[in-house]
Nucleic acid binder design. Structure first.
Length: 553
RNA sequence: UGGGGUGUAGCCAAGCGGUAAGGCAACGGGUUUUGAUCCCGUCAUGCGGAGGUUCGAUCCCUCCCACCCCAGCCA
């Protein structure tokens, strides 16, 4: 390996060895979301990992919905998840798969387990079985139903399936070891009764398999070779293997665990994200402040940048919290290279060029990208009245303020250098207008008198400006680790996470901005057109890096 | 407390007995009609701690410490 090669992660190493030794003929992975919410940035890591590994080793990756709990699942989520994965740039093998399509096979295997004396129907209530389970310090006690005849369990299992037994009145449990230090091995529940209709199977089932009973068997049915999940399932691995070894399954997948992606100032818990949506704190699962794939997309993040973040963060087994700055770097880096430039004034202040004829209009040209001629040039009308940014003008300022000041010069981006003369104020003393003069012959040239401008500001021609609205975003939470400790994440919301600006003015060229494209508004940041608004509304993806403390000067 | 796992810079993360990669952030400097980009430079005598083995230890051994996960008929 040369020093410039990217080091491989532990999963790549494991798979590589399995392939070389012939243990793995063809790699098969899977991404197994439960359709109980939208996908978020944390899922993106798992998606990149599973699909990425399949690509790298010439294998395949299945999309399989782990839909074993009908109460929380819905078709809306199934659809959204597929859209997001495709948008991220990945293609699953064949049709999307569903755990629910394997319910028949799973049930037969459950019967097999009972016949083998490895599972039984338990009629303890939920509360009773909690008591029987014991805790970390005390071993559990065997259920009084543990040694009932297999025939009896089989009969009860049928009744459970046929809806003859009430919810909670019975469950199918594996017969393993009630004294195990691993709580998952204390006769885990395999099937529970739920008289609820399922988004895929409707009312045909009255019982549903638990995650533990379903997952490994689904992997086996699909021929998954490497079943990659997050760290919290480490304790389930012995059970995963016990089940696979106890039933006549077609293949033996292996489970491997990695550390999930955590981002500071961000929540990656579907339960909590759903609470934000349900409470109306955000606009929906795709609110641009949400760390969901849909939210990031609406915010203007690209699939490539998200993949880049996952790549930068790496894959390990140690818990970690990635700095949000890394995600911001990923999107800025991509947009800087690819986003066409334009000008937009967020908080307008009228600028009147007193020495510029009222009836005159020139056409200025500016590059779409300062380093990429291939992107071409755009034209901007220029006339006597322009809009500039309120914060770009001060009546007086120190030398660090590199913008417009009375008596000083500044360059209008892609146009003239101007010199300010006066501020017009209303009765309350607010500045309503600035008067300035252009310095002749300074478009594309330095002034002939040698007095150069100290800075550059953006502008928009007033008569041809297009009115628009802009949404500025900040992190949703004020706390680095929302909801940690005894805190309630709902009380750590950032009140300024959304600033809605109306009456902004953009270059005319932006009127037909395409949804899904990223633009740089020079000196402001990157923006994208909102996908849900009829009017011209831009969402701020991310601001420009600001090394000089722009607002302190 | 029983079981499982993890500790390398502010944040990620390589390293697999031969003398601490890389990225993000930060900080200097240069270029610049975006306070952007770009370019150059700085940033762990140190690898959770203490012992031990060895010519040599982030890596091997022992003990200790810290943090994370598990007591759903959630996944």
């Amino acid at each position: 390996m040369s020093s410039t090669d990217k080091p491989t992660n532990f999963l790549q190493n494991i798979i590589s060895e399995d392939v070389q030794s012939g243990k793995t003929k063809q790699l098969v992975t899977r991404f197994p979301p439960e359709p109980n919410g939208y996908l978020h940035i944390g899922h993106a890591k798992s998606i990149c990992l599973n699909f990425g590994l399949a690509q790298e080793f010439g294998g395949t990756c299945n999309l399989r919905f782990d839909d074993t709990n009908p109460e929380k699942e819905s078709q809306e989520y199934v659809d959204a998840i597929q859209k997001d994965i495709a948008w991220l740039g990945f293609e699953w093998n064949g049709e999307a798969k569903f755990a629910s399509n394997y319910f028949g096979q799973l049930f037969e295997w459950a019967q097999h387990l009972v016949r083998e004396g490895k599972a039984y129907v338990c009629e303890l209530s939920a509360e009773e079985s909690r008591e029987y389970r014991g805790d970390f310090t005390r071993p559990g006690k065997n259920s009084p139903y543990r040694d009932r005849p297999a025939e009896e369990s089989l009969d009860l299992l049928d009744k459970m399936k046929d809806g003859e037994l009430a919810e909670g009145s019975a469950s199918l449990r594996a017969k393993i070891d009630m004294s195990s230090g691993n709580m998952n091995l204390r006769d885990p529940v395999l099937y529970r009764i739920r008289h609820v209709s399922h988004h895929n199977t409707g009312d045909t089932w009255k019982i549903y398999p638990t995650y533990d009973f379903a997952h490994g068997q689904e992997d086996s049915i699909e021929g998954v070779t490497h079943s990659i999940c997050t760290l919290e399932f480490q304790d389930h691995k012995p059970l995963y293997e016990w089940l696979l070894e106890s039933m006549p399954v077609p293949s033996q997948p292996r489970q491997y665990e990695f550390a999930r992606l955590n981002l500071n100032y961000t929540i990656t818990s579907k339960r909590k994200l759903k609470a934000l949506v349900d409470s109306g704190v955000v606009d929906g699962w795709d609110d641009p402040r949400m760390p969901t794939i849909a939210g990031l997309r609406r915010r203007g993040y690209t699939a490539k940048a998200i993949r880049r973040l996952c790549d930068m963060a790496g894959v390990t087994r140690s818990d970690s919290v990635v700095d949000l700055g890394m995600l911001e770097f990923a999107i800025r880096d991509e947009l800087d290279k690819n986003a066409p430039r334009s000008m937009c004034v967020l908080r307008p202040l009228k600028l009147v060029l007193t020495n510029y004829p009222e009836d005159k209009t020139e056409v200025m040209t500016g590059p779409y990208h300062p380093q990429r001629d291939d992107m071409g040039f755009r034209e901007m009308p220029f006339s006597r009245e322009l809009w500039i940014e309120q914060e770009d003008f001060r009546e007086e300022a120190n030398k660090k303020f590199k913008r417009l000041v009375i008596g000083k010069r500044v360059r209008l981006r892609n146009a003239y250098i101007i010199e300010a003369d006066a501020a017009v104020k209303d009765a309350a003393g607010n500045i309503t207008e600035v008067h300035a003069r252009i310095i002749e012959n300074t478009v594309g040239n330095d002034p002939e008198d040698g007095i150069r401008a100290k800075g550059v500001i953006h502008w928009v021609d007033a008569p041809s400006a297009v009115s628009c609205a802009i949404n500025l975003f900040d992190r949703l939470f004020t706390h680095e680790s929302p909801g940690s400790g005894d805190e309630d994440f709902m009380e750590q919301l950032n009140p300024d996470s959304l600033v809605e600006l109306k009456g902004c003015y953009s270059e005319a060229s932006l009127a037909k901005a395409e949804i899904g494209k990223g633009f740089q508004f020079e000196r402001q940041g990157y923006f994208t057109r909102d996908s849900r608004s009829e009017d011209l509304v831009f969402n701020q993806t991310i601001g420009l890096r600001d090394s000089q403390g722009k607002f302190n000067s």
